[in-house]
Amino acid sequence: VGDQVLEIVPSNEEQIKNLLQLEAQEHLQLDFWKSPTTPGETAHVRVPFVNVQAVKVFLESQGIAYSIMIED
């Protein structure tokens, strides 16, 4: 199991704000291929294997929908 690319769908401005804060966490080494800008629009982010669980827990705790787009 390696890195994953998640497709994330924020449903409101609050969730977009939370994702932008997540993007700013440099220690997570997230690679946003497509940043969140509009509710209902997908964002794509590559998550290093060591941080996959932490990111998924965060998304679930914020009620942000996501799916695994690419499993490496």
Rank of each mutant, 00 (worst) to 15 (best):
A65T: 12
G2N: 10
E41W: 09
G40N: 07
E60K: 06
V9Q: 06
V45M: 11
V52G: 03
Q4V: 15
I68P: 03
F32W: 15
I68Y: 05
K56V: 12
E14N: 07
V50C: 12
L20R: 12
D72V: 14
W33S: 10
E41V: 10
V45A: 05
Y66H: 03
H44M: 15
E7Y: 13
I16G: 01
I8D: 01
V1A: 13
A43W: 15
T42N: 04
N18D: 09
A24F: 08
I16Q: 02
V50T: 10
E13V: 10
V52E: 03
Q62S: 10
E71Y: 12
T37C: 05
L6M: 07
I68C: 04
G40I: 02
A54K: 11
H27L: 07
L20E: 06
P10E: 01
V57Y: 14
V9N: 07
P39Q: 04
K17W: 12
Y66W: 07
A65V: 09
H44P: 02
V45W: 02
V1G: 13
Q29M: 12
D31I: 15
Y66L: 01
D3K: 06
E23P: 05
I8M: 05
F32G: 02
P36A: 11
I68E: 04
K56Q: 06
G63Y: 04
K17P: 01
V9T: 11
E23F: 14
E71Q: 13
T42H: 08
A65W: 14
S67P: 00
V55P: 00
Q53H: 13
L19N: 00
N12M: 02
Q62M: 14
Q29P: 03
V9K: 09
A65R: 12
N18H: 13
N12K: 02
V5K: 05
Q15P: 00
V52P: 00
T38N: 08
Q21H: 13
F49T: 06
V47F: 01
K17R: 14
P48S: 07
Q29N: 12
K17M: 12
L30Q: 01
Q25L: 12
I64A: 01
L28K: 03
E14C: 06
Q15T: 02
F49L: 10
E7A: 15
I16K: 02
N12S: 10
L28N: 03
Q25K: 09
L28W: 14
Q29G: 13
Q4E: 08
F32Y: 05
E14M: 09
M69L: 11
V52Q: 05
G2P: 09
S61G: 08
V45L: 15
N12I: 02
V55Y: 03
G63K: 05
L30I: 11
G63A: 04
P10D: 01
M69H: 08
E13N: 10
H27A: 09
Q62Y: 14
D72F: 15
S61F: 06
D31F: 15
Q62N: 14
A43N: 04
E14A: 10
V57R: 13
Y66I: 01
Q15Y: 01
S67E: 06
T42Q: 05
Q62E: 06
V47R: 00
L19C: 03
Q4A: 12
P36T: 05
Q53E: 13
S61D: 07
A43V: 15
I68S: 04
P48E: 03
H44K: 11
T38H: 07
R46Q: 05
L22Y: 05
R46A: 06
V5L: 09
Q25N: 13
E71V: 08
I64M: 05
S11W: 10
G63M: 05
F49N: 07
Q29D: 08
K56F: 08
S11L: 12
V47L: 03
N12F: 02
W33L: 15
I8L: 08
V52N: 04
L6E: 00
L28F: 10
E26K: 14
P10R: 01
Q15L: 01
I16D: 00
V50A: 14
P39N: 03
Q15S: 03
F32P: 02
T42D: 02
M69T: 05
V52A: 06
L59K: 00
A24Y: 09
D31H: 15
D31C: 15
K34Q: 07
L30P: 01
K56M: 14
E13M: 15
E7F: 10
V1P: 13
S35A: 13
L30D: 01
E14K: 07
G40F: 09
T37G: 06
F58G: 01
R46D: 02
